[in-house]
Amino acid sequence: MTAYRYDYDVITQWIEPGEKVLDLGCGDGELLRHLMEVRQVQGYGVENDPDKLLGSVRNGVNVIQMDLEKGLVGLEDGFFDHVIMSLSLQAMHNTQGILREMLRVGREAVVSFPNFGYWRHRQSILNGRMPVSESLPHQWFNTPNVRFFTIADFDALCEINGIAVRERLAFDEGKLVLEEPNFLASVAVYRLGLER
């Protein structure tokens, strides 16, 4: 996960001190640990992998075992200031369901994902092979990813679901991309809310 610290930095900038934060797919709790230290958040991670969950406990991070495909049942509406999903959305089947749930329990959602429309990925496909890159490190046969989408696809999904894109930052392997992000960016980080 350390390879993606730039997405952590963006996320951190969007979090105010003392917020209530939920991190979906928190792994060993690295991001939450960071947010606890620099933003004094009251943070909770969600993780369904027992080994990663153990890592979070060892890191002293609150972690709750839950299957995100089943939503966030049991959590109050609007309880969290921010609900984060860092580089995990592409690994979930119930894409729309989890986005809805994130914006139900949180005031804002923060989502980052690898952009399948990145030019190197396109080039790879043109050359006849599925892309493997820093942001898509797995081979097609062992990838945990189950949804393959681009920045443009995600924008369209937000549009039809009444999700407001409040901010979006795009990166090419760590460097900020200002133009043509769907072509030039490997990862995008979104700050989302519900359209009023």
Partner: peptide, 15 residues
């Protein structure tokens, strides 16, 4: 777990 969380208590949960 959820009742503790809603009170902003530190809680971890494993199944």
């Amino acid at each position: 777990v959820y009742a503790l969380l809603h009170n902003k208590r530190n809680v971890s949960y494993a199944e």
